[in-house]
Simulated scan of single mutants.
Amino acid sequence: MTRTLTVADRHEREREVDRLVAEGYRVLRGSDTETRLRDASGGSWAWHLIFLFMTLGIGNILYAIRNYVRADRVVVRQESA
């Protein structure tokens, strides 16, 4: 899922990006008026441990792929001047 946040100026966009990075998002790419981020969490450590012992690591790989595909994405866009 991708959500878009629209901000008024460059400083507000930088503040919003900094806040999202502090929450665990990773910057995918940025330009002068737009920054794209993705939730960088790899999933719950408890699930990774369960899958490690039950599936000899194959479940971990599938769980990590699932989390990557379903990760929350955010576009922080600056309004046109």
Rank of each mutant, 00 (worst) to 15 (best):
M1P: 14
T2D: 08
T2M: 10
T2K: 15
R3M: 13
R3S: 12
R3N: 05
R3P: 05
L5V: 15
L5C: 11
T6S: 12
T6G: 04
V7L: 08
V7T: 03
V7N: 06
A8C: 10
A8Y: 12
D9G: 03
R10L: 08
R10I: 09
H11F: 10
E12C: 00
E12V: 05
E12I: 00
E14W: 00
V17H: 01
V17E: 00
V17I: 00
V17W: 05
R19K: 15
R19M: 13
R19Y: 10
L20H: 07
L20F: 06
V21C: 15
V21K: 15
A22Y: 11
E23I: 07
E23Y: 11
E23V: 07
G24R: 10
G24K: 14
Y25W: 06
V27R: 01
V27S: 05
V27M: 06
L28D: 11
L28P: 06
R29I: 02
R29C: 09
R29P: 06
G30L: 01
G30A: 13
G30N: 08
T33E: 12
T33K: 13
T33G: 11
E34C: 13
T35D: 01
T35R: 02
T35F: 08
R38T: 13
R38V: 12
R38F: 03
R38H: 08
R38W: 09
D39V: 01
D39F: 10
A40K: 02
A40R: 04
A40N: 02
S41K: 06
S41Q: 09
S41Y: 14
S41E: 14
S41T: 09
G43A: 03
G43F: 03
G43S: 11
G43I: 02
G43Y: 04
S44K: 09
W45D: 05
A46E: 02
W47R: 14
W47Y: 11
H48Y: 06
H48E: 07
H48R: 10
H48F: 11
L49S: 00
L49V: 06
I50K: 08
I50D: 01
L52Y: 00
L52C: 02
L52D: 01
F53D: 03
L56R: 00
L56Y: 04
G57E: 02
I58Q: 04
G59C: 04
N60W: 08
I61V: 14
L62D: 02
L62M: 13
L62F: 11
L62H: 10
Y63K: 04
Y63P: 00
Y63F: 07
A64R: 02
I65L: 10
R66D: 04
N67A: 03
Y68K: 08
Y68G: 08
Y68C: 04
R70D: 10
R70P: 06
D72A: 13
R73K: 15
R73V: 14
R73Q: 15
R73H: 10
V74I: 09
V75A: 12
V76M: 04
V76F: 07
V76H: 01
R77L: 10
R77E: 14
R77G: 04
Q78P: 06
E79S: 12
E79F: 05
